[in-house]
Protein backbone atom coordinates (compact mmCIF):
# COMPACT_ATOMS: atom_id res chain seq x y z
CA UNK A 1 0.00 0.00 0.00
CA UNK A 2 2.85 2.35 -0.64
CA UNK A 3 0.89 4.60 -2.91
CA UNK A 4 1.91 8.20 -2.81
CA UNK A 5 -0.89 10.49 -3.95
CA UNK A 6 0.61 13.21 -6.05
CA UNK A 7 -1.78 15.86 -4.83
CA UNK A 8 -0.34 15.83 -1.32
CA UNK A 9 2.50 17.99 -0.21
CA UNK A 10 5.94 16.51 0.24
CA UNK A 11 5.68 17.00 4.02
CA UNK A 12 2.56 14.96 4.15
CA UNK A 13 4.05 12.26 2.01
CA UNK A 14 7.15 12.02 4.16
CA UNK A 15 5.05 11.55 7.27
CA UNK A 16 3.16 8.74 5.53
CA UNK A 17 6.47 7.01 5.06
CA UNK A 18 6.93 6.86 8.81
CA UNK A 19 4.29 4.14 8.88
CA UNK A 20 6.13 1.84 6.50
CA UNK A 21 8.23 -1.10 7.62
CA UNK A 22 11.70 -2.06 6.42
CA UNK A 23 10.47 -4.26 3.62
CA UNK A 24 8.10 -1.64 2.27
CA UNK A 25 10.73 1.07 2.42
CA UNK A 26 13.28 -1.01 0.58
CA UNK A 27 10.66 -1.86 -2.04
CA UNK A 28 10.29 1.88 -2.59
CA UNK A 29 14.02 2.18 -3.25
CA UNK A 30 13.68 -0.46 -5.90
CA UNK A 31 11.09 1.66 -7.64
CA UNK A 32 13.36 4.70 -7.38
CA UNK A 33 11.51 6.58 -4.65
CA UNK A 34 14.00 8.88 -2.95
CA UNK A 35 11.61 9.70 -0.12
CA UNK A 36 11.90 6.06 0.90
CA UNK A 37 15.64 6.52 1.29
CA UNK A 38 15.07 9.74 3.20
CA UNK A 39 12.85 7.93 5.66
CA UNK A 40 15.47 5.23 6.17
CA UNK A 41 18.00 8.01 6.74
CA UNK A 42 15.69 9.75 9.21
CA UNK A 43 15.34 6.58 11.26
CA UNK A 44 18.92 5.35 11.23
CA UNK A 45 21.41 8.07 10.42
CA UNK A 46 21.88 9.32 13.96
CA UNK A 47 22.68 5.84 15.24
CA UNK A 48 24.98 5.08 12.32
CA UNK A 49 26.76 8.40 12.58
CA UNK A 50 27.20 8.13 16.33
CA UNK A 51 28.64 4.63 16.03
CA UNK A 52 31.02 5.55 13.22
CA UNK A 53 32.02 8.68 15.10
CA UNK A 54 32.69 6.75 18.29
CA UNK A 55 34.87 4.21 16.56
CA UNK A 56 36.76 6.51 14.18
CA UNK A 57 36.66 9.54 16.46
CA UNK A 58 36.19 11.64 13.37
CA UNK A 59 32.96 13.32 12.50
CA UNK A 60 34.02 13.76 8.90
CA UNK A 61 34.94 10.08 8.61
CA UNK A 62 31.52 9.28 10.06
CA UNK A 63 29.91 11.55 7.44
CA UNK A 64 31.68 9.68 4.69
CA UNK A 65 30.80 6.28 6.07
CA UNK A 66 27.12 7.11 6.43
CA UNK A 67 26.99 8.63 2.97
CA UNK A 68 28.66 5.59 1.44
CA UNK A 69 26.16 3.27 3.10
CA UNK A 70 23.12 5.15 1.84
CA UNK A 71 24.49 5.54 -1.67
CA UNK A 72 25.13 1.80 -1.78
CA UNK A 73 21.71 0.95 -0.43
CA UNK A 74 20.13 3.17 -3.04
CA UNK A 75 22.12 1.55 -5.85
CA UNK A 76 21.46 -1.98 -4.65
CA UNK A 77 18.42 -2.33 -2.38
CA UNK A 78 18.45 -6.09 -2.92
CA UNK A 79 21.57 -6.33 -0.80
CA UNK A 80 19.18 -6.09 2.15
CA UNK A 81 17.26 -9.27 2.86
CA UNK A 82 14.39 -8.56 5.28
CA UNK A 83 14.22 -12.24 6.18
CA UNK A 84 17.69 -12.10 7.70
CA UNK A 85 17.20 -9.26 10.12
CA UNK A 86 16.25 -5.64 10.55
CA UNK A 87 17.37 -2.84 8.30
CA UNK A 88 18.80 -1.10 11.36
CA UNK A 89 21.03 -4.04 12.11
CA UNK A 90 21.99 -4.46 8.45
CA UNK A 91 23.08 -0.83 8.21
CA UNK A 92 24.85 -0.85 11.55
CA UNK A 93 26.95 -3.85 10.54
CA UNK A 94 28.19 -1.88 7.54
CA UNK A 95 28.85 1.31 9.47
CA UNK A 96 30.75 -0.48 12.19
CA UNK A 97 32.77 -2.69 9.89
CA UNK A 98 33.76 0.23 7.69
CA UNK A 99 34.77 2.22 10.78
CA UNK A 100 36.87 -0.63 12.08
CA UNK A 101 38.56 -1.07 8.71
CA UNK A 102 39.43 2.62 8.73
CA UNK A 103 40.95 2.71 12.19
CA UNK A 104 42.81 -0.53 11.64
CA UNK A 105 44.47 0.82 8.54
CA UNK A 106 45.08 4.07 10.39
CA UNK A 107 46.62 2.12 13.20
CA UNK A 108 48.85 0.22 10.81
CA UNK A 109 50.00 3.49 9.31
CA UNK A 110 50.59 5.07 12.69
CA UNK A 111 52.65 2.09 13.77
CA UNK A 112 54.83 2.40 10.68
CA UNK A 113 55.29 6.11 11.12
CA UNK A 114 56.02 5.66 14.77
CA UNK A 115 58.95 3.41 13.99
CA UNK A 116 60.36 6.24 11.96
CA UNK A 117 59.86 9.32 14.06
CA UNK A 118 58.77 7.92 17.40
CA UNK A 119 56.06 10.52 17.70
CA UNK A 120 53.47 9.73 20.36
CA UNK A 121 50.41 9.90 18.14
CA UNK A 122 46.96 9.08 19.42
CA UNK A 123 46.18 5.48 18.89
CA UNK A 124 49.55 3.94 19.47
CA UNK A 125 50.71 5.94 22.50
CA UNK A 126 49.99 3.08 24.83
CA UNK A 127 47.65 0.48 23.52
CA UNK A 128 46.03 -0.23 26.82
CA UNK A 129 45.85 3.34 28.01
CA UNK A 130 44.45 4.60 24.77
CA UNK A 131 41.96 1.82 24.40
CA UNK A 132 40.64 2.16 27.90
CA UNK A 133 40.59 5.92 27.59
CA UNK A 134 38.17 5.68 24.74
CA UNK A 135 35.54 3.77 26.58
CA UNK A 136 32.61 5.80 27.69
CA UNK A 137 30.97 3.78 30.35
CA UNK A 138 27.93 5.96 30.69
CA UNK A 139 27.13 5.67 27.03
CA UNK A 140 25.68 2.26 27.26
CA UNK A 141 22.12 1.52 28.00
CA UNK A 142 20.49 -0.35 30.81
CA UNK A 143 20.69 -3.48 28.71
CA UNK A 144 24.36 -3.59 29.71
CA UNK A 145 23.74 -3.31 33.42
CA UNK A 146 23.42 -7.05 33.97
CA UNK A 147 26.89 -7.62 32.60
CA UNK A 148 29.85 -8.19 34.86
CA UNK A 149 32.57 -5.56 34.56
CA UNK A 150 34.76 -8.12 32.81
CA UNK A 151 32.13 -8.82 30.20
CA UNK A 152 31.28 -5.18 29.65
CA UNK A 153 34.90 -4.13 29.26
CA UNK A 154 35.63 -6.97 26.85
CA UNK A 155 32.67 -5.97 24.68
CA UNK A 156 33.38 -2.27 24.79
CA UNK A 157 37.06 -2.71 24.03
CA UNK A 158 36.32 -4.99 21.13
CA UNK A 159 33.45 -2.98 19.70
CA UNK A 160 34.62 0.58 20.12
CA UNK A 161 38.38 0.42 19.70
CA UNK A 162 38.57 -1.83 16.66
CA UNK A 163 40.87 -4.27 18.45
CA UNK A 164 40.57 -7.95 17.69
CA UNK A 165 39.58 -10.24 20.56
CA UNK A 166 43.19 -11.42 20.54
CA UNK A 167 44.44 -7.87 21.06
CA UNK A 168 41.85 -7.36 23.77
CA UNK A 169 43.12 -10.51 25.47
CA UNK A 170 46.65 -9.15 25.29
CA UNK A 171 45.57 -5.78 26.65
CA UNK A 172 43.79 -7.40 29.57
CA UNK A 173 46.42 -10.13 30.05
CA UNK A 174 43.97 -13.00 29.86
CA UNK A 175 43.79 -15.96 27.46
CA UNK A 176 42.02 -15.54 24.11
CA UNK A 177 39.40 -18.08 25.12
CA UNK A 178 38.46 -16.04 28.15
CA UNK A 179 37.76 -12.98 26.03
CA UNK A 180 35.79 -14.97 23.49
CA UNK A 181 33.55 -16.37 26.18
CA UNK A 182 33.18 -13.03 28.01
CA UNK A 183 32.04 -11.44 24.78
CA UNK A 184 29.60 -14.20 23.99
CA UNK A 185 28.16 -14.39 27.47
CA UNK A 186 27.85 -10.62 27.57
CA UNK A 187 26.09 -10.39 24.24
CA UNK A 188 23.74 -13.17 25.25
CA UNK A 189 22.89 -11.32 28.47
CA UNK A 190 22.17 -8.16 26.52
CA UNK A 191 19.83 -10.09 24.28
CA UNK A 192 18.04 -11.67 27.21
CA UNK A 193 17.61 -8.33 28.96
CA UNK A 194 16.19 -6.83 25.77
CA UNK A 195 13.80 -9.77 25.38
CA UNK A 196 12.61 -9.30 28.94
CA UNK A 197 12.08 -5.57 28.47
CA UNK A 198 10.20 -6.18 25.30
CA UNK A 199 7.94 -8.72 26.92
CA UNK A 200 7.27 -6.24 29.70
CA UNK A 201 6.26 -3.53 27.25
CA UNK A 202 4.35 -5.36 24.56
CA UNK A 203 2.69 -7.88 26.87
CA UNK A 204 3.04 -10.45 24.14
Amino acid sequence: MASTPKSRSQEKQQSDYALLDDRQLVDLLRSGDELGLKEIFRRNSSMLHATANKVTRSSSAADEIVQEIFVKLWANPDSFDPDRGSLRSFLLVQAHRRSVDIIRSEQARTMRERRVDNAPTGRSASVEETALGRIELQSLTTAMKNLSDDERIAIELAYITGHTYHEVATILSVPDGTIKSRIRTGLRKIKETLDLNQRGVTDD
Partner: peptide, 20 residues
Protein backbone atom coordinates in the same frame (compact mmCIF):
# COMPACT_ATOMS: atom_id res chain seq x y z
CA UNK B 1 23.34 -11.13 18.44
CA UNK B 2 23.46 -8.44 15.76
CA UNK B 3 19.87 -7.48 16.49
CA UNK B 4 20.72 -7.23 20.18
CA UNK B 5 23.73 -5.10 19.42
CA UNK B 6 21.77 -2.81 17.16
CA UNK B 7 19.25 -2.18 19.95
CA UNK B 8 21.94 -0.74 22.19
CA UNK B 9 23.83 1.18 19.51
CA UNK B 10 24.62 4.74 20.55
CA UNK B 11 22.80 7.57 18.92
CA UNK B 12 23.58 11.22 18.83
CA UNK B 13 20.29 13.01 18.83
CA UNK B 14 21.95 16.40 18.97
CA UNK B 15 23.79 15.89 15.72
CA UNK B 16 22.37 17.81 12.81
CA UNK B 17 22.62 15.56 9.82
CA UNK B 18 20.54 17.65 7.41
CA UNK B 19 23.63 18.63 5.43
CA UNK B 20 24.64 15.02 5.20
Amino acid sequence: LREALSSIAPSDDAANLDDL
